[in-house]
Amino acid sequence: MEFGYYPGCALHGSSNDYQASVGACMKALGVGLRELDDWICCGASAAHSINHKLSQALPARNLALAERDGLGELLAPCPMCSMELIKAAQAMRDDAALGREMSEIVELPVSGRTSVLNLIQVFQKVGLDAIRVAIKPDSAERVGGYKAACYYGCLLTRPPKLLQFDDPEQPGSMEEILGAIGVTTVDWNFKTECCGAGMTMANEETVLDLGHKILANAAAHGANCVVVACPMCHVNLDMKQAAVEARHGVRLDMPIYYLSDLVGLALGIEPRALGIDRHFAGKR
């Protein structure tokens, strides 16, 4: 099994722990990842706030590269990237004239036919049975003690009409994958509440307050870790957790794992190879 791979800026920057985790997991599962050659930034929330056309053209350039290189399915582990890529692809499929305009702007033919997948969807394509077979006999010792609050945030399921992925109010796809590797999951209230995403820099107070609500709710429901599949969720809940604790006068000490961290541990991969040693929170 092979997928095209669009890491996005975060995974090549301070979320290199996510990159390590996804890469190690896929290797252990026998999934090949072909990185998109000379990919560019998707534009993220800055482009769609400032210039609508640019917010289509930046993803369109990447979709054009994927089409040129014959990559029919593209894994984008950052939900901001995957949502922007899917949005541009859908707009071009709906409107052939836009596809022609984008082909001129990005200097390569593009139609939007690439199927863009998030990390959960790639695990689903590998298959829960294949994952059950691949995990190590001692995986219960490695991951059996976790009680995970699966946190989806915004862009894995929203906008629902565009993404057509899981239930936007009560998603359960991460719970299914964690269930297959023997991790207990908890029911809680903030699965799809926003963490503030890209506002970390411009509006830190908002991010700290939203993060506090999310982490406190996970703890109140008996979770001993929070599992994410988004680099921005990880920054806001992990790297900013000390600031959340300081602002709200609480002690959380909650480890934040990427979904691929726990799957990787069950597959017998060492924490260091998954980048878990680069996390900030939950080490006291």
Binding site: C9, D38, A46, A47, I50, L54
Partner: peptide, 18 residues
Amino acid sequence: TVIFQKAFLQNIRRNGRI
């Protein structure tokens, strides 16, 4: 927010990536 988002776009314009 505008300063951040404009700096973000300038950065992409210069480097192609953030």
